[in-house]
Design a protein around this nucleic acid. Structure first.
Length: 854
RNA sequence: GCCGAGGUGGCGAAACUGGCAGACGCAGGGGACUUAAAAUCCCCAGAGCGAACGCUCGUGCGGGUUCAAAUCCCGCCCUCGGCACCA
C-alpha cells in the first residue's frame, strides 16, 4: 500500500486558524481557579521577526499548550512595544511616518505568529503607541507626580547628539549611547526624573524571594550598588562645612586632603581669589571631557588646589582642599576625604601632587611600610595605628568602633549610599507618549487633569528628526487651573515607561475609565513565568519592578513584585561574513563560503546573534517553506537548553525533519492496525518486550511532564520523545505485537509531541480517529510504579571500577541486603573476587553495588 | 579590579540529590535497497593497546575528600556576560 507522505504545508494550512476559532487561548473565566499568567516579553515591531525572535515565542507556545492540557486557566497575551527611536529612524529612512511603519510591521508579525502556530489571547492585544494605551502611561506619570515620585530638575544629563535626545543612565552602555554608539555629551537641562532611588533598598532586598536566574539578580544588585559607610563632616575655611562619604571611616586619621568633584557647589566658596583662574580653567576642561575620558581609570590624575583648608576632625590638622574629576559629582556627597595610604586612587593623586601619605592601618607586630614606596595598602584586616584613642583597635572592629566614636563626637554618622541614579524619562523626540504637564506663568507647573487625558500626540507629517517642540502650535494651550494661556511640556516619555506597566494592562485591556481593574490584577499577578532576553536584565526588569512597587504603595495593586519566575532565554547565533572592503555580506554574496563575491578578498567568518545589520538573519518564511513550521519549532527547541545561546545550523534542522517524517510514517502505518484495538492494554498479559515498552512510555511521560512543567529543559524532553518513538519503531516490527499497547503508545506520543509540533500532532490525532481536539484532551498521566519496571540493571564496581552488570528484580534492587547478596552470588563477581579479601561492600538501592577488596 | 555564568567526543549536547560519563541528534564510516543517485532502513563510532574475551586512559589544569567525583573542597588557567576612578 502506498503511504501518504508527510506534507507539512497542507497540514499546517489546515489547522492554522482552528485553534483561534475554537478559542483555546482565550481566558474563559473571570475567576480562575488554577491561574497561570504566562508572559513573553513583548516585541518591538521593527520589520519581520527572525528565527531568533521565534525562539522566545516558540518556547512560550509549547509551555502554554502544555498548561492548557493540564487544565490551567492560562492568561497568555501579546502586544507591541511600539513607541521609540527605531521606528523614527526607520521612518526617516523610508520617508514614511513612524505610525504607518509600526502598524504595518505589527500586521506582518501577527501573520508570522500565525504561520508558526503560535497563539495568544489576541482579544487582549495591547499597542503602546495607541492613545487607548498611552493615556494610561500618562496617568501613571501623573500618579507618580502627585506622590512626589516624578520631579523635574536641572541636571547634568547625557545627551546623544546623533539621536538628538537625552538618555537615562541605564541607556549609556560603556560610555556610548546604547542605540547608536555615539558617545553622549554632557548637558545641563531641565528634565523629568522618576525617583527610583527611593526604592533602591527594596529593589535590592526583594530580589531574594524571586525565582530568577542568579546572574540576572546579580546584575541588578551590581546596578543598584549598595555601599555601607559613614558621612563625616569637615569644618573648612570661610565657615563652610563639607560632608564626605566613605566606606572606610576607620582610615580618617590618615586623611591628608579633601577632594571635591568639579561640579560641587562648594567649589566656588572654597576657592581663594588667587586660585580662581586656575580652578575655573580646570572646571571648564573637566566639563568638556567626554564621559569616556573622564571614566578612564588609567588616565593620570588631574586636579587643582582650591587654596583653602579643612580641619581633620580627629587630628585637628589643617588639610588642603582640592578639586579633581576623579570624584563623581552624583555619588555619595560629591566629595571625598583623601586617604592615600589606604586607597589606590588617593595614593595616585597624592603621589602626583606631593601630598602627605600617612599609614593608619597596619598588620600587627610588623614595621610600618615606607609611605614613599608603597602602593596603597588595602589592609582591611590590620590594626588601627596612629589613630589616637582608637589605636590598637583590630581591623574586624575598626569600622564599627570608629562610626560609634564619630557619632558620639558629632562628627559623622552611619550612611548607606547607592550607585543607582534617578530615572531620567524626558526625551526630545516625537514618537513617544507626551508628558502631561502644562507650564503656566501664573500657576507654575500644572499637571494635566486626569479627565483631559490623553494628551494626544499631534497627527502631523513626520519630517525627520523632530520633537514636539518642532510641531507648530503643539505647545500652545490653556492652563487647566486658571484658564490663561500656557505652554505644554514638549518632551515625550522614555519608551521604557511604556513597557514598565504593560503586564498590568493585559489583565483588563479594554477599560476606558481605569488603566486596569485592581481586583483582576490582584487575581492574575504576579506573572507566573516571564520569558525574554537577558538584554533586559537591568533596564526593563528594574523599571517594571520599580513601577509595580510604586503602584503597590499607592494602593493600586496588591503584589509588590511583577514577575515571580523569570526565564532568560539564550540568543540564536548564525554565521556572519565580513569583507574588509565591502563590510557585512549576505551568505549569497560570499563565494565558496570564504571569498567576497564583489572583490574576491577573503572574508572574516564569525558567529553573532542574528541581526539585520550583520546580515546573518534567517527568515522563518524560508524555513517554513522548506520544512514547515513544526520542523522549525522542534529544531529551535531541540538544539540546546533554552537558556543558552545556540548556533543555527542547516544540517541540524534536517535531523529534526527526518524525525518528524519517521513519526508520520510510523503512526500512519499503525493506524489501520490500531484502529482494531479495543480498550486499554493489560499489563498482566505483557511479555518482556511489552513490559519494556510500557515502562519506557511511563518514564517518558514523567520526563516530559517534568521538563515542560518546571525544569524547562525542553531539549531533553524532545530527546526523550525521540527515544520513545525509536523504541516503538523497533517494537512494531516484531512478529507479534499487542495492538492495544501500540495504540496507547502512539496516542500518548502524539500528545507529548503536541506542544512542540502542534500541526503534525493535531493531524495525526485526527487520523487516529480521535474526536476531541488535542487541546480538549488531558495531558497523559504516568504511573510511578510503571516507571520503575520489574527488573533493573545494577552495575557492580570492584575497587571503584564497573566490572559487571546484574539484572535484578526491582524489589530486590530496592533492598540493600538483597542487592548485596545478589551481587556477591553472581558468578562473574565470584570469579573476580577469587584470591582477594572482601573488605567492604556498599549497596545503593536501585543504583549500584560497590565492593572493596584487597 | 569586583561580581556572575561557563569549559564534557569531530560538532550541538546529556548525566536533576556524589552512584554505569557521552542519552538524543548532527557530521562521519560500513552495509542493504537501486542501473545509478537521492531518500529510506540496518550496523559501527571518546582515545589508546589488542586477533579477541578485554585492559588502560579520559569531563580545562594541579592537588584533596570519598568505596565512588563532570558533580564536593583547595589552588590555578581560559571563554563569555555585568559593573567599574562609585570613595
Amino acid at each position: 500500500m502506498k503511504r501518504e507522505a508527510y506534507d507539512p504545508h497542507a497540514i499546517e494550512e489546515k489547522w492554522r486558524d482552528f485553534w483561534r476559532e475554537k478559542g483555546y487561548f482565550r481566558v474563559k473565566t473571570a475567576s480562575p481557579r488554577k491561574k497561570f499568567y504566562y508572559l513573553n516579553m513583548f516585541p518591538y515591531p521593527s520589520g519581520y521577526l527572525h528565527v531568533g525572535h521565534g525562539r522566545n515565542y516558540i518556547i512560550g507556545d509549547a509551555i502554554v499548550r502544555f498548561l492548557i492540557m493540564r487544565g490551567h486557566d492560562v492568561l497568555n497575551p501579546m502586544g507591541w512595544d511600539a513607541f521609540g527611536l527605531p521606528a523614527e529612524n526607520a521612518a526617516i529612512e523610508r520617508g514614511t511616518h513612524p505610525r504607518e511603519w509600526t502598524l504595518a510591521n505589527i500586521a506582518y508579525a501577527k501573520d508570522q505568529f500565525r504561520a508558526w502556530g503560535i497563539e495568544y489571547d489576541w482579544g487582549r492585544e495591547v499597542t503602546t503607541c495607541l492613545p487607548g494605551y498611552y493615556r494610561w502611561t500618562q496617568w501613571l506619570f501623573l500618579k507618580l507626580y502627585e506622590n512626589g515620585l516624578a520631579y523635574k530638575k536641572r541636571a547634568d544629563v547625557n545627551y546623544c547628539p546623533s539621536c538628538q535626545t537625552v538618555l537615562a543612565n541605564e541607556q549609556v552602555a560603556g560610555g556610548e549611547c546604547d542605540r547608536c554608539g555615539t558617545p553622549p555629551e554632557r548637558k545641563t537641562l531641565d528634565q523629568w526624573f522618576f525617583r527610583i532611588t527611593a526604592y533602591a533598598e527594596r529593589l535590592l532586598a526583594d530580589l531574594a524571594d524571586l525565582d530568577w536566574p542568579e546572574h540576572v539578580k546579580k546584575m541588578q544588585e551590581n546596578w543598584i550598588g549598595r555601599s555601607e559607610g559613614a558621612t563625616i563632616t569637615f569644618r573648612c575655611d570661610r565657615d563652610a562645612s563639607l560632608p564626605v562619604f566613605t566606606t572606610r571611616p576607620d582610615t580618617l586619621w590618615g586623611a591628608t586632603f579633601l577632594v571635591l568633584a568639579p561640579e560641587h557647589p562648594l567649589v566656588d566658596v572654597l576657592t581663594v581669589p588667587e586660585r580662581k583662574a586656575d580652578v575655573e580653567g580646570y572646571r571648564r576642561q573637566a566639563s568638556r571631557a567626554s564621559e569616556i575620558e573622564r571614566l578612564s581609570a588609567e588616565r593620570e590624575k588631574t586636579g587643582v588646589f582650591l587654596g583653602s583648608r579643612a580641619q581633620n576632625p580627629v587630628t585637628g590638622e589643617p588639610i588642603p582642599i582640592w578639586t579633581s574629576d576623579y570624584v563623581t559629582p552624583t555619588y555619595g556627597t560629591g566629595a571625598i576625604m583623601g586617604v592615600p595610604a589606604h586607597d589606590e586612587r588617593d595614593f595616585a593623586f597624592a603621589r602626583r601632587f606631593g601630598l602627605p601619605i600617612r599609614v593608619v592601618i597596619a598588620p600587627p607586630e610588623e614595621p610600618l611600610p615606607d609611605p614613599r614606596t608603597m602602593a596603597a595598602a588595602y589592609t582591611g584586616s590590620g590594626t588601627m595605628v596612629s589613630s589616637g584613642l582608637l589605636s590598637g583597635t583590630p581591623g574586624s572592629h575598626a569600622i564599627e568602633r570608629t562610626i560609634g566614636y564619630l557619632a558620639e563626637q558629632g562628627i559623622g554618622e552611619r550612611k548607606v549610599v547607592y550607585r543607582l541614579r534617578d530615572w531620567l524619562i524626558s526625551r526630545q523626540r516625537y514618537w513617544g507618549a507626551p508628558i502631561p504637564i502644562v507650564y503656566c506663568d501664573r500657576c507654575g507647573v500644572v499637571p494635566v487633569p486626569e479627565a483631559d487625558l490623553p494628551v494626544l500626540l499631534p497627527d502631523v507629517p513626520f519630517v525627520g528628526k523632530m520633537g514636539l517642540a518642532d510641531v507648530p502650535g503643539y505647545a500652545d494651550t490653556t492652563c487647566p487651573q486658571c484658564g490663561g494661556s500656557a505652554k505644554r511640556d514638549t518632551d515625550t516619555m522614555d519608551t521604557f515607561v511604556d513597557s514598565s506597566w504593560y503586564f498590568l494592562r493585559f489583565v483588563s485591556p479594554h477599560e476606558e475609565t481605569v488603566p486596569f481593574v485592581s481586583e483582576d490584577v490582584n487575581c492574575w499577578l504576579p506573572v507566573d513565568l516571564y520569558v525574554g532576553g537577558v538584554e533586559h536584565a537591568i533596564l526593563h526588569l528594574l523599571y517594571a519592578r520599580f513601577i509595580t512597587k510604586a503602584l503597590h504603595d499607592l494602593g493600586h495593586v496588591a503584589p509588590a513584585e511583577p514577575f515571580r519566575r523569570l526565564f532568560a532565554q539564550g540568543m540564536v547565533c548564525h554565521t556572519a561574513y565580513k569583507c574588509q572592503e565591502h563590510g557585512w555580506l549576505y551568505p549569497k554574496e560570499v563565494n565558496d563560503g570564504l571569498r567576497c563575491g564583489t572583490c574576491g578578498q577573503e572574508v572574516a567568518t564569525s558567529y553573532f546573534s542574528m541581526s539585520k545589520s550583520k546580515k546573518n538573519v534567517v527568515e522563518p518564511a524560508e524555513i517554513i517553506a522548506r520544512y514547515g513550521a513544526d520542523t522549525e519549532r522542534l529544531y529551535t527547541l531541540f538544539m540546546g537548553p533554552p537558556d543558552r545561546d545556540i548556533e543555527w545550523s542547516e544540517d541540524g534542522i534536517r535531523g529534526v525533519w527526518r524525525f518528524l517524517n519517521r513519526v508520520w510514517n510510523l503512526v500512519s502505518g499503525e493506524i489501520p492496525r490500531s484502529a482494531l484495538a479495543q480498550g486499554e492494554p493489560d499489563p498482566l498479559q505483557f511479555g518482556s518486550a511489552e513490559r519494556a515498552l510500557w515502562q519506557k512510555l511511563h518514564a517518558t511521560v514523567e520526563k516530559v511532564t517534568e521538563e515542560l512543567g518546571d525544569r524547562l529543559g525542553l531539549n531533553t524532553a524532545i530527546a526523550a520523545i525521540m527515544e520513545l518513538v525509536n523504541e516503538l519503531g523497533v517494537y512494531v516490527n516484531r512478529p507479534e505485537t499487542d495492538p492495544r499497547l501500540v495504540r496507547r503508545v502512539v496516542r500518548d506520543a502524539i500528545l507529548l509531541l503536541s506542544p512542540f509540533t502542534p500541526f503534525l500532532a493535531e493531524e495525526l490525532w485526527q487520523r487516529m480517529g480521535e474526536k476531541r481536539p488535542i487541546l480538549d484532551t488531558p495531558w497523559p498521566e504516568y504511573d510511578p510504579g510503571a516507571v520503575v519496571g520489574d527488573e533493573v540493571e545494577i552495575p557492580v564496581q570492584i575497587n571503584g571500577k564497573v566490572r559487571t552488570r546484574l539484572r535484578v528484580a526491582a524489589q530486590a534492587a530496592a533492598d540493600p541486603r538483597a542487592l548485596q547478596k545478589a551481587a556477591l552470588a553472581s558468578p562473574e563477581v565470584q570469579e573476580r573476587l577469587r584470591g582477594h579479601e572482601v573488605q567492604r561492600v556498599i549497596a545503593v538501592p536501585g543504583k549500584l553495588v560497590s565492593i572493596v577488596v584487597r
